[in-house]
Nucleic acid binder design. Structure first.
Length: 431
DNA sequence: TCTGGGGTCCTAGGACCC
DNA sequence: TCTGGGGTCCTAGGACCC
């Protein structure tokens, strides 16, 4: 068993640099929606000690002092670059798991041990040459160790971007793991790290030496698997085809707070529209809609409010208009007047495949009913085609309100063009 | 003034049943 | 004084990931 993990370096920043070479060697951050938090940092920014997830307003002065370039996130660009990177990497192995927008696992069995480093170096060369993106490669007998090897490949220049765990002598492996805080391991977050620390487990090596059964009893089966994986026992298989989604979410923080039920209804209408589109694209239906609205959790008074409710459907559906109705019914139940809302969201749950719809026991399944259903299906198809052609949001249900009236739209002060996915924004070569 | 979004999995606890 | 036991299903919440 052998896995490779290929992971983009500072992925979003690197994507931006491909099209703006002047950003090379300069400190760059990419911000989340509403220009809220730092979600990607160039090496120069990491060196300044700015942590992932830092709110932008907290470091604005520091950023100015160091000439940090801050970009709004441009997901259309990152997703397109990601797709290109994944198809290039797919050519290196018959089995690939796309794990996130900037990383994938490859199955390496069949590749001779002595050929692996060269293979990793070739992957790096190809991605750099075709896309201009820097990546690092970690290889190991388990996915957890491959993640660790990737971490080493990134942090230690000696590896030149490719680290094959299996080629490291046992004593050196021990020494490396003893230097890494336990939180560096895939699957160990802050909470578990704190709890482990109290039990004297501080480094990855400490965790590796712990008894898996004991870890299971004090924590859970997930952490037990992590321990086994650290010991070289592969417990987490490669998932080459993505399992069907179990829920679909669409939520956003508002550019400025919303106080009216009407404003929330507009936002939820749009979010439901998007979620329903995703649902149909995956040929699924949902059995219930969960609606969530909340005030800012950072505000002291009035105390934060988070209202959410799950509204079941009488009959599973992926019809945008049906789902909007249900979502707005939920909103009516959780809305409290007099509050400043900071965020709203829709979660489609209880998903199942389209076509095996559990009929409504009390509905008359007569011919007229069938015909009505068919007309609605065609309406949704038309809606999807219009969105495909003119962009999502080009046509909306009335409750979405008019764009000009929206008080809650996103702030995105500094977004770069969609260089690779919109004709009008493709870069032009100046002679 | 200003703090992301979209997922998964696991566990605990309550309701309910026999 | 003393109030069963074991199973399933559902939901909410926590932890984690990128």
């Amino acid at each position: 068993m052998s896995f490779a993990l290929i992971d983009g370096n500072n992925f979003y920043v690197s994507c931006e640099r491909v099209f703006q070479p002047r950003l090379e060697e300069r400190p760059v951050v990419v911000l989340s929606n509403n220009d809220g938090c730092v979600v990607a940092r160039s090496a120069e920014v990491k060196a300044l000690g700015i942590a992932m997830g830092t709110p932008w307003f907290q470091i604005r002065d520091l950023a100015e002092a160091h000439g940090i370039v801050a970009l709004s996130s441009n997901y259309a660009l990152y997703a397109d670059m990601s797709n290109r990177m994944m198809s290039l990497l797919a050519s290196f192995s018959p089995l690939q798991e796309v794990y996130s927008i900037d990383e994938c696992f490859l199955d390496l069995h069949g590749v001779a041990a002595e050929d692996r480093l060269a293979l990793g170096a070739r992957m790096r060369r190809v991605i750099r040459q075709y896309l201009g993106l820097p990546v690092c490669v970690g290889m190991a007998p388990t996915k957890t160790l491959a993640k660790l090897a990737n971490h080493l490949a990134k942090k230690r220049p000696g590896y030149q971007g490719v680290c094959d765990w299996a080629r490291i002598a046992a004593a050196e492996q021990d020494a490396l793991l003893a230097e890494l805080p336990v939180q560096e391991v895939w699957g160990v977050g802050g909470q578990s790290a704190a709890a482990l620390g109290k039990m004297g487990i501080h480094t990855v090596q400490d965790l590796r030496l712990a008894d898996p059964a004991w870890i299971h009893s004090r924590f859970n089966v997930v952490l037990e698997r992590t321990v086994r994986e650290l010991r070289g026992e592969s417990c987490i298989a490669l998932e080459t085809l993505a399992p069907p989604r179990q829920e679909i979410q669409c939520s956003r923080s508002f550019g400025q707070s919303v106080t009216t039920e009407r404003g929330l209804a507009e936002a939820l209408t749009l979010y439901t529209t998007r979620a329903a589109q995703k649902l149909r694209r995956q040929r699924q239906v949902c059995g219930a809609v969960r609606v969530m609205i909340r005030t800012s959790p950072f505000q002291q008074r009035p105390p934060p409010y988070c209202g959410s409710i799950t509204v079941p459907l009488r009959e599973a559906s992926n019809d945008t208009l049906v789902l909007i109705q249900v979502a707005l019914r939920g909103l009516r139940r959780v809305f409290r007047p007099g509050l400043s809302y900071a965020k709203a969201g829709v979660l489609l749950v209880d998903l199942g495949p389209e076509g095996v719809i559990q009929g409504d026991l009390f509905a008359m399944a007569d011919a007229e009913d069938q015909a009505g259903r068919e007309r609605r299906r065609q309406l949704m198809e038309t809606l999807d085609r219009i969105h495909g052609r003119y962009g999502s949001g080009s046509i909306n249900p009335g409750t979405a309100g008019l764009r000009a009236d929206r008080e809650w739209g996103m702030r995105r002060g500094n977004r770069s063009p969609a260089y690779t996915t919109r004709w009008a924004e493709i870069p032009q070569v100046l002679a």
